[in-house]
């Protein structure tokens, strides 16, 4: 019955709810790890603790991938939420890309080992913190979309706020890097990292915008 076995309708639903919650948890946790990774890298360079953290991000990314596939499979197999299915799947994919961006940043630090002079450390850490706060606000927006549609707008607004903050911090740091006496190749190299971190915010804002549209579609 209902397009799937009636006995499994509510158990499937509960399982999916758990999986989606878990996915958002992972995105949030990856951000928190990333927030520690940058200062760890800057203070101790690429030592054992840093590699350990990168490995942790990699594991979380794989777990998120697995959940995305499972959710996708169940939603289509059991024809659940036909009206919002494509929106939910696109949302999960874009959030997965966000996790991938965190992971990519970690790998780039690990492989390219950028040499940030001490004078830029605090600015880079602050930029990273703003980016992670932006993604945290996105996690709240996503949870709102699933559970409390009324608060989507408020949380989405926070994402926009942090994105603007991040832009300001990125511009200031990039300007300071290029105003410094460092050789041009190093300036370019550092700018690349700063820009890559800032892009996480851009992606988060795009997702928040998408969610606000999905929320309008979902109003009764």
């Amino acid at each position: 019955m209902f397009g799937l076995k009636s006995s499994s309708l509510f158990s499937d639903t509960k399982k999916l709810e758990r999986e989606i919650d878990e996915f958002v948890d992972i995105l949030s946790e990856v951000g928190l790890v990333f927030k520690s990774i940058v200062p760890t890298y800057l203070n101790h360079s690429a030592n054992g603790k840093f590699d350990e953290m990168v490995e942790k991000v990699k594991d979380m990314e794989s777990k998120a991938d697995k959940i995305t596939k499972e959710v996708e499979h169940t939603l289509y197999e059991e024809t659940l939420i036909p009206d919002a299915r494509s929106d939910v799947l696109r949302l999960l994919e874009h959030m997965d890309e966000l996790i991938g961006m965190y992971q990519g940043n970690c790998y780039h630090f690990s492989i390219q080992k950028p040499n940030f002079p001490k004078e830029f450390h605090q600015d880079l850490i602050e930029l990273t913190e703003t980016v992670v706060s932006c993604v945290e606000a996105l996690c709240l927006t996503v949870r709102s979309f699933f559970r409390d549609i009324k608060t989507v707008r408020d949380n989405g607004h926070k994402v926009t706020f942090y994105e603007k903050e991040s832009d300001i911090k990125f511009s200031a740091l990039a300007r300071r890097i290029f105003d410094s006496e460092l050789p041009l190749d190093q300036k370019m190299h550092l700018r690349y990292f700063v820009e890559k971190i800032d892009r996480i915010c851009d992606q988060a804002e795009d997702i928040a915008d998408e969610i606000q549209i999905y929320a309008i579609k979902r109003t009764v």
Partner: peptide, 14 residues
Amino acid sequence: RRLHILRLDAYTRT
């Protein structure tokens, strides 16, 4: 009630 979108879906089907 703040129902999860999936829970709402299951209730709506029923």
